[in-house]
Nucleic acid binder design. Structure first.
Lengths: 212, 212, 212, 212
DNA sequence: GATGAATGAGCGTTCATTCAT
DNA sequence: CATGAATGAACGCTCATTCAT
């Protein structure tokens, strides 16, 4: 009479999480195309038809992984900094949370993310998430600028934010590839890249191309 | 006595370029996995066995594409700035050349590059190229720092350079996705992100995490 | 003390009819192979294992459908004409009943029938029904012939009857495909095909191949 | 140094016929759905991908079979009777040719044909052929009627012709199921069904439903 | 040198069918 | 009585790759 009801016949919700765990693992290890539904099913300790019954097609399964991991990451970041704090504190806490998350999910999100960037069908799903991040960062910059009585065109804000997000993603890749690296330290380095430049912008300093 | 006007029987070097052109086109349009050797051969106006004879397996073919396009890009960048110019000028000219190249090869390199990031087999090939860029950027920073009598640990230099390269790649993606965007303007924006922060570093300003 | 108003727990016979209704509908719409037990169960508002418990395997279920619909049709025909009427009246009433039935069950029997003709496992079930019809028609012909003092070999009778049944089935298909067509008019047309020829036979007129 | 070039590497046209032969055989034996591409390929002595390369999808393959056999049959019928002969002679020769063809291809066309009737995707392909036959038969009737100074509404002509074609198909089924039966004799019987009635029509005799 | 012909291997997907609850 | 959970077994299809000519 074990507490855990049995070994099999688990409720749907549980099985779905098992499958997603396995899928994240296999997609990460092999990449989307090289991953086989057989391996995912086997890794989840379940037969293939169950995967199709619960999570659908291979693409849908991948999107489900993307979704779960993305949501988790967004929550980790969102819960890190209250919106009423100063911009640098918010940025720092957000970055720290982000790199902390990536460091703790090296096999999961970071690699999933790398997969998704390359495959067309998932570009949009990803673009949505990145767009949210870009928007948040641009909003922070805009807020701080206005507090200083300055302003930047929307497109410039967006591109700068885009670049910062890109730099962050890049360092996340670097972190995922360097298992011994410290997430917090990486966040500090990112701050040095991001904030020093941003602070200049806040003070009205800009760079202009030379005459040539 | 060949009366056939020598349409076929082209010298090997020419054929190889035709194949690479076709391969870049197809890989870009379809992505690595969705691309089929059949389509590449047909697009090159040649039979499949010839592709195998000249450029080898599908992976090798992709690497060859990567290689050719990468080399072209590196040359475009390298030729843009003499190494004895000041760091900001070198950086600016390099970025301008880079974004100019990407803008002119939106369908080619940019997409190839995006493909390569996601597929494990090509990570190394790509990592090598990126490492060269990181090294160059880190070298420029180091050089400029020392000119100011300052110094940064190698790892810090590398990570900062890595972040800048990542931001640049990100904007290259953005550029590839916005056909109407101006490469030079994009380069200017990147300079505003990169140089303002870097200049701070040169003057000894750094950001440190708060006590929290 | 069941307060639940007895929505479920219906008596077996009722459930079986629900299932058969659903099965006929789905088999008609999709065809035997394309029909899935899932859809049938869902359409019947019941779980799949119940279908298996009550009506057995997919093939058995199909046969059950065939059986029910076939019996209904046979009854409709059989009740249409008393056996002591003249042959032409019996034939007319039988045809009228048949086309009436098909017209009223376009989605049911007609399609079921078309399905069954093509799938080997059900050929026999169908052949039995058709054989009964052929026998009846042949019997009518024989009876009428003998009343005229004539006779036809059993095999000839059978083949002629077979052809008439075939023509009738064909027109039933035609009727099922032309929802606006009138069953009674179709029956009249069939009589014109069947009876004019048969009447000739009754008067001893036969066709013989030319010398050629 | 055999006259037949080799065992393998046959030209495409030859292989296609081999495949069609095998496909007709397997489709006939198993039915469309139960037939597997593996079995067809194996029976043709070739690997599966070749089948897909040359003849396409399973459905396309089936249509190709239908097409080849149908064309052969139509040619057999068309070549049997010159259009300037009297209607009964034309009908007789056409039927004789048809039953001769079916009798000679019991395993091929007749069974294929039965398959096609049931499966929706092929209904149209088949309907086209049947429509051609119906048109020819209706044309013959119309021609003969006008020669007698009579006329029938187009719809009536069509339905009568449809019934005759249906009766013929039915006897073809019967013939296919009775390997010992004689095709010519079957044709004669069909003439007795078809022509005796048709001749009545030609003489203005029609059947009308009784008052009831 | 160049190609049409050919294949081994594998993957995504579906479905009828049955336990265990 | 009734069902959600689970699976074995196939099947259609594709593709990179290689002979034989």
């Amino acid at each position: 009479m074990p507490t855990v009801p049995a070994f099999k016949r688990l409720p749907r919700a549980v099985r779905e999480q098992q499958m997603l765990d396995a899928a994240v693992k296999v997609f990460s290890r092999r990449g989307f195309h090289a991953a086989s539904m057989d391996e995912i099913a086997e890794d989840a300790g379940i037969s293939k038809p169950m995967v199709y019954a619960y999570l659908g097609t291979k693409e849908e399964l991948f999107v489900a992984c993307l979704h779960r991991e993305g949501t988790r990451m967004m929550q980790a970041i969102a819960g890190a900094a209250a919106p009423d704090l100063p911009a640098d504190i918010r940025l720092w806490r957000g970055l720290r949370a982000f790199f902390g998350f990536v460091g703790a999910h090296r096999d999961g999100w970071a690699v999933l993310y790398r997969q998704a960037r390359g495959e067309q069908p998932f570009a949009s799903e990803l673009a949505t998430m990145r767009a949210r991040l870009v928007e948040v960062v641009a909003g922070m910059l805009d807020h701080a600028l206005r507090a200083e009585g300055r302003e930047l065109a929307a497109i410039d804000l967006e591109v700068v934010a885009y670049a910062l997000v890109g730099a962050t993603e890049s360092l996340a890749d670097w972190l995922a590839d360097h298992p011994e690296a410290d997430p917090e330290k990486t966040a500090t380095r990112m701050m040095n890249v991001a904030w020093l430049g941003a602070a200049q912008l806040l003070h009205g300093v800009t760079w202009r191309p030379p005459a040539d």
